[in-house]
């Protein structure tokens, strides 16, 4: 049983639920997990930083704002703030160009924002599969805290 996490959405749940984000390109999936209570969450974000003038309620699009929100919600649901760990996947650059534009580097900026936000909160980043030019489907297993990454052109799967 897997629970879909669409673009700009996030889900908080507990074992034995598997959270799934399909077809990530430049988007990034951030999984946060408390191994003891086996509560966890995953968000599927588009943009690295939430601008100061962003209207309230639009947190879901932004990597930093969503991570803050997921940590808050996990703690409220009974997870231990000190035990939280994180894993990230995605942040690709699907359309390779010979020149660099702002939008082309969005995947890399999403990944950087996730790392920086996690460091700022003191959450250990236990695994990551980011960058490159391939799409990814990510499953975050709340029974084990494993993050599985699948690619379209590759039968191998990666376990973070």
């Amino acid at each position: 049983m897997s629970d879909r996490v669409s673009i700009a959405q996030a889900r908080i749940d507990q074992a034995p639920v598997v959270l799934k984000a399909s077809g990530l390109g430049s988007c990034i999936a951030v999984g946060i997990y408390d191994p003891e209570s086996r509560l966890g969450g995953m968000g599927h974000m588009l943009l690295p930083f939430r601008p100061k003038q962003a209207p309230l309620g639009s947190a879901g699009k932004y990597v930093d704002a969503r991570i803050f929100q997921m940590v808050d919600e996990l703690v409220r649901a009974g997870a231990s703030r000190e035990k939280l760990v994180a894993k990230i996947a995605g942040g690709a650059n699907m359309f390779e160009t010979t020149y660099q534009t702002l939008i082309n580097s969005i995947g890399a900026r999403n990944a950087r924002s996730a790392r920086e936000t996690l460091v700022g909160l003191g959450l250990p980043l236990l695994g990551e599969d980011v960058g490159g030019n391939r799409g990814r489907t990510v499953e975050f297993d709340l029974a084990t805290g494993n993050m599985m990454v699948y690619c379209a052109h590759d039968s191998e799967q990666l376990s973070l």
């Binding site: 673009i7 700009a8 399909s22 077809g23 990530l24 390109g25 430049s26 988007c27 588009l46 943009l47 699009k61 690709a92 699907m94 359309f95 390779e96 160009t97 939008i103 969005i106 030019n133 391939r134 799409g135 990814r136 489907t137 379209a152 052109h153």
Partner: peptide, 21 residues
Amino acid sequence: VPLLAYDMAGAVVDYVLIELS
């Protein structure tokens, strides 16, 4: 200039969605 990607639909379109979002 056109750019091309051959991959999962979600991964291919999120590039445009990011711009829109």
